[in-house]
Amino acid sequence: MAENQQQHHVTPLWVYLGVGGALLVLTVVTVAVAKVDFGVLVGVSSLNIIVAMIIASIKAILVALFFMHLIYDAKINMAVFITALLFLGVFIGLTMFDTVRRADVYELEEGPIKPKAKIYQNQ
């Protein structure tokens, strides 16, 4: 069975060692760039955190694709993993719709909802 062979995919040794090496290098890089101040991105967030998260994401993708075999595996497993991240994003994102705008103040103006309504014309 061809599919059966596919299930027993043996990753070449150099892939594991190469990915491991890349992860260690990226760890050094992320520590090093943390000491540099990249400034602030349009007043929202410091650029440092974005750089750090991009590096961490690259590392996580390497782990998922090669150590966890997602690149060779049935696509359903990758779909499950991406779904997890997507809904984590929904959770944090929709909660932030509240928390970052909690202090917003809305100016209220007193006045009729429909100024042209008849009851206002009589006054």
Binding site: F97, D98, T99, V100, R101
Partner: peptide
């Protein structure tokens, strides 16, 4: 169903922006 939970919190003091979206 994952996108609507804030409708339980309309009078909880969450931001109006979030309340409108929910």
């Amino acid at each position: 169903s994952f996108l609507v939970w804030g409708h339980h919190m309309f009078v909880s003091g969450q931001s109006r922006f979030a309340a409108m979206i929910f």
